[in-house]
Design a protein around this nucleic acid. Sequence first.
DNA 1: CCATCTGGATAACGAGCCGTTATAGAATGG
DNA 2: CCATTCTATAACGGCTCGTTATCCAGATGG
Lengths: 303, 303
Amino acid sequence: MIDAAGLRVMKAIRDEGSFTAAAASLGYTQPAVSQMVRRLEQRTGTVLVERLGRKVRLTEAGEVLARYAGTVLTALDAAEEEVAAIAGLRSGRVRLWAFPSSSATVVPHALALVKRRYPDVVVTFNEAEPPESLAALRAGECDIAVAFTYEGLDLGEIQEDLESLAVTKLLDDEVRLALPKNHPLAKRKGVSLDDLSDDPWIAGCPKCRGHLLHLAREAGFAPDVAFETEDYVAVQGLVAEGLGVALIPDLILRTTHHPDVVALPVEPASRREIFAVTTPDLSRVPAVAATIDALVEAAKVHG
Amino acid sequence: MIDAAGLRVMKAIRDEGSFTAAAASLGYTQPAVSQMVRRLEQRTGTVLVERLGRKVRLTEAGEVLARYAGTVLTALDAAEEEVAAIAGLRSGRVRLWAFPSSSATVVPHALALVKRRYPDVVVTFNEAEPPESLAALRAGECDIAVAFTYEGLDLGEIQEDLESLAVTKLLDDEVRLALPKNHPLAKRKGVSLDDLSDDPWIAGCPKCRGHLLHLAREAGFAPDVAFETEDYVAVQGLVAEGLGVALIPDLILRTTHHPDVVALPVEPASRREIFAVTTPDLSRVPAVAATIDALVEAAKVHG
DNA sequence: CCATCTGGATAACGAGCCGTTATAGAATGG
DNA sequence: CCATTCTATAACGGCTCGTTATCCAGATGG
């Protein structure tokens, strides 16, 4: 019934003392104010302005409206400013979920970039493997999921999602074969999987295990998986002790490379793709877009 | 830019969890909400709602708007309620200015009526002679002026005002001739002014003095005005002491009649008219109208 | 696995709000 | 008394903001 525009007009009339001055202060013409007052009086069924010859003065009811105008307009301005701050990256919160091996390299770098550029944008961070992070994204618990997918494989599960999501490629992560440095093949420049069909294997996260099984099947054997752990420091420890060989993404080796482990290129080359994933809506939120941009730049450095 | 309707919609979406439910709770159709959100998003240049398949969820910016909605809508409701209270006579303030002799009788009775009927309407009261109270009315310092005018005379000054004012007749107040009870004419049933052309006169307020001069001139003499005072108790004291005779309105005699004074009808009869005056605008303010109604009723009783 | 249902987006449309300009009328001040 | 200044009103136009009708996607249940 009563709206902010009406209150603004009443306040202007009280402050300026005449319709004409009120109109000028609002950037309106005089009849606009005159009609607005009339409408308000009709709606409230009350006289709001007392016309004293050439002067006008608010009635008691009119004063009430003018008084509330302050509260309402201040709140509206504050709301607008807060939204503008989010839009202008002077504020904002991004919930980023990333898988563990990205959190050591690309993600911290990206967060530093965002922090430097937009000090008041807060990026919260959570470690999670791709299926979990994508579920969180769809549930609205996170804004950006940093996920990966192994080439050629297991797109099935994720791909369906990706169609309705906004996916940004970050980098390709070459997969290498980790051997103890005293392994017979450790001096080679590269190896193919079937060279190691008789070795015991150490598998990483479930997706990585699936990838290993996939590559091995293509190479024509079923690997003997002796250990499984999601911790790649542990994987390298096991390899160093000669308990098995493993596939390890290059990204991990860049940050933690056990001295007694050698990592050889795999033939044929295999890699995983790392993405930043968000929803189409969120991709248009400035803080989210800025964070994804930072991830892309960080990925270039680490690519 | 942002208005209350937009905030109300955002709040409803947050509270209800879907556009459809929000629309229902507001009495709108679903497309109305859908379009309102789109408009708000265009205006703010920000994504306000995240569409998650069949569910929707507010973004950070959307939450900001929903949060402010409470403040704004509460203030608007409060403003509306306060105005409605004034319109519904559950609140309100009336500034009444009345001339002294009315304040003893009609006005107190009227105030009692208003108080009984509308306990929360506050009538403030001020004593002032007609020219002053009418000036206050025109200056916006008072809402109702209770004034009088002597029959046939001096309308000139007031009449011009009355055309642009809202005038309500309250009562006719007969003017009587006050004599000391031992005056030679004190036993008459009535007197004409020229019976007393040789007596000294005591004049009341300036208007009353003017009225006296007018009547005397019509009767063919110029009165010897021995004293002037606006206090009619004093006037009667002077009359009782035999220091002169005076014209006194009946209304005054009803409340304070000096035992040593007799008040005889004047021939030909003369009276003053008592009015409640307000502005056309104010006459439509419920509390003002109610007070004038009460004055009319009180005047009937005292007529 | 398909049918169904629920919820959102979009198009088309209409009413009403709310501005504008033009003009008349009333009050004030020199 | 005239000029100025203020408000009121009429006529008009555009945009906001509803509506209905319809389509499409996602969830659900047999």
